[in-house]
Amino acid sequence: MAEDRTQQPNSLYDFTVKDIRGNEVCMSNYRGKVLLIVNVASKCGFTNSNYKELNVLYQNYKHQGLEILAFPCNQFAGQEPGTNEEIEEVACTIFKAEFPIFEKIEVNGKNAAPIYKFLKSQKGGIFGDGIKWNFTKFLVDTNGKVIERYAPTTSPLKIEKDIQNLLGVSS
């Protein structure tokens, strides 16, 4: 019987994703950075607070090696219905996001983006691997290892200590 030799990604750095404008981005570009990867939505009850706090984290730690990667997703109550252009307008103009925003993806199901399949395989949730709602957060260390997964209800500023520990900085 032939063994399945499908190449499974070993690392987050094996993936290529598309940014909000459709340009390919190799995740290996982020090697050596601490990453906070978040599935975002423009019309969620958590949107205002999450974007506000993600912006604070980004401003405070981007020069020390933090990168926040936002992946819009419309799988939760249709709360990210717009086109990539509309999403970029909302994220960057209304919510003033300066961190990278990627193209709209699915995070669950058979059409889930490969990067999200990998993230979920590394850190399952309390009730299974599926992403439960907008603003689920994955914290990744400088070697591309998924360190922690946070629920949508965990505010970004509550993750600050964990980010500081990975960056080797103090408050």
Rank of each mutant, 00 (worst) to 15 (best):
A70P: 08
F71T: 01
C73I: 10
N74G: 04
Q75T: 07
Q75G: 07
A77Q: 10
A77C: 05
Q79T: 05
Q79Y: 09
P81Q: 04
P81F: 08
G82N: 06
T83H: 03
T83K: 01
N84C: 08
E85A: 15
E85W: 15
E86T: 06
I87Q: 14
E89L: 11
V90G: 00
V90F: 15
A91V: 11
A91K: 04
A91G: 04
I94K: 13
I94T: 07
F95K: 10
K96P: 10
K96N: 07
A97S: 06
E98T: 05
E98K: 02
F99H: 03
P100N: 04
I101N: 09
I101F: 14
K104I: 01
I105H: 14
I105Q: 14
E106H: 07
V107E: 04
V107S: 10
G109R: 13
G109K: 14
K110C: 09
N111A: 07
A113M: 12
A113G: 01
Y116G: 10
F118L: 12
F118P: 00
K120C: 05
S121N: 07
S121L: 01
K123I: 11
G125W: 06
F127D: 11
F127I: 07
F127N: 15
G128Q: 04
G128K: 03
D129Y: 14
G130M: 15
K132A: 15
K132C: 12
W133G: 14
W133T: 11
W133A: 12
K137T: 00
F138A: 04
F138K: 15
D141I: 00
T142K: 12
N143S: 12
N143W: 07
G144K: 02
K145S: 09
V146I: 14
V146K: 10
I147S: 08
E148W: 08
E148T: 04
E148S: 13
R149G: 05
Y150S: 06
Y150W: 12
P152K: 05
P152V: 11
T153G: 03
T153A: 12
T154E: 06
T154M: 12
S155M: 12
S155Q: 11
S155Y: 00
S155H: 13
S155I: 15
P156M: 08
L157R: 03
L157F: 01
K158Q: 03
I159Y: 00
E160Y: 00
I163F: 07
I163A: 13
